[in-house]
Amino acid sequence: MIGDFLNIELQDIQERSDILDKPTKNEVVLLHAKAMKYEWKEYAFFEESTHASGRELIVQLPEEALNDLMQLKKLCDSLAERGIGENRDYEYVIRWNQKEANFHLLYSERKKNVGRTPRIYTRDFWYDKKTNRQAKPHAKNAELRFEEGTFQRDRSGKIKYEGPAFLERDPFFASENWYRHMEETILKLFKEYGFIKDENYDLCVIDIDEKEQDSHSELVPVATPSNLIYLDERRDSTKQKSERSVEISEKIKGLLTIGSVTCQKIGSGISTGFKTVFKEINKRVSPFFRNIKRKLVNAPFFKKLMEFIS
């Protein structure tokens, strides 16, 4: 149904962006727009330790919206701005497969850190023209490269700033409140543009972790009744697997119990056997040592030794 949407956590938003704006045999790209200060690779590098560089919102658009591309762009701009708020980079693509059009919005959960101050050189930096090494101001071939009070720049010419480029990730986008907010936003916009006239119209909402998706799939399917049936079947299958796992676990536990009892019996038998062996050894060896002791005590040198000690 129109307006149904998915919210997907992306592991590599740069890779997703590269795929998203490429047409395929079955789909064409009707519209592609960006509102970005930073590139997705900068977000991916910043999020390297979290393994979640952004999110993708997919909304099924009504067919009537394709009749006017200027109106369609206004609708998509409003979806992006009202859906994720201000001060966030985003990119969206409209893909059409001859049957339905889908709005794909890539965005970051982090706001841009607009309050940063630029880095400024606190003194002049002179370099030798030939050796490209730092030099004194009056040295031969010296030239002023970086003047005191000017902005510091990276190799690409961008100004360097104090502090990180992005703020903390906003947990709002993974909460139920955001889903309700997005549902209300889509319904309100579609009604404003005259695409929905039924006041009781409801949307289908699905939250997906990209880890559950095939990493080689080019596009994530749109939420449809068939997808929902598939999800129900997958839940039933998961329940059956869980019950089977419990059954197997109980059988393994029973086998381990039997094994433990068997080991105890074997250990008890071994212990009894050792006791019998040592008892027999003691029975045979004891007379031998008593005979040696008697001979030693009666020996002449032992008697003389005891007399000397006393």
Rank of each mutant, 00 (worst) to 15 (best):
M1L: 12
I2R: 09
Q11W: 10
R16Q: 12
D18G: 09
K22W: 08
E27R: 15
L31G: 02
M36T: 08
K37F: 06
A44T: 12
F45I: 07
F45P: 02
T50W: 08
A52E: 10
R55C: 12
L57R: 06
I58S: 04
N67V: 03
Q71W: 00
L75S: 01
D77C: 03
L79Q: 01
L79D: 01
G83N: 03
I84V: 11
R88T: 01
R88Y: 07
D89Q: 05
Y90D: 02
E91L: 07
V93S: 09
N97M: 04
Q98I: 06
N102P: 05
N102E: 11
E109V: 14
G115R: 14
R116Y: 04
Y121D: 00
T122E: 10
T122S: 12
T122D: 11
D124N: 14
W126D: 00
W126A: 01
Y127A: 03
K129T: 09
K130C: 01
N132A: 09
P137V: 00
P137L: 00
H138A: 04
F146G: 00
D154L: 05
I159N: 09
I159T: 13
E162R: 09
E162V: 09
P164L: 01
P164G: 00
P164T: 01
R169E: 10
R180K: 14
R180D: 05
E183T: 15
E183K: 11
T185L: 06
T185A: 05
I186P: 02
L187N: 08
K188N: 14
E199N: 10
L203P: 06
L203E: 01
C204S: 15
C204A: 15
D209Q: 04
E210Y: 08
Q213M: 12
H216P: 00
E218Q: 15
P221R: 06
Y230T: 12
L231N: 10
D232K: 15
E233M: 09
R234Y: 08
S237L: 09
T238S: 13
Q240P: 00
S242R: 13
S245R: 14
S260W: 11
I266M: 11
S271Q: 14
T272R: 15
K275I: 11
K279W: 12
R284A: 10
P287T: 03
F289Y: 13
R290K: 15
R290H: 13
K295P: 02
N298P: 03
F301I: 09
F302E: 07
K303M: 04
K304S: 13
L305H: 12
S310F: 15
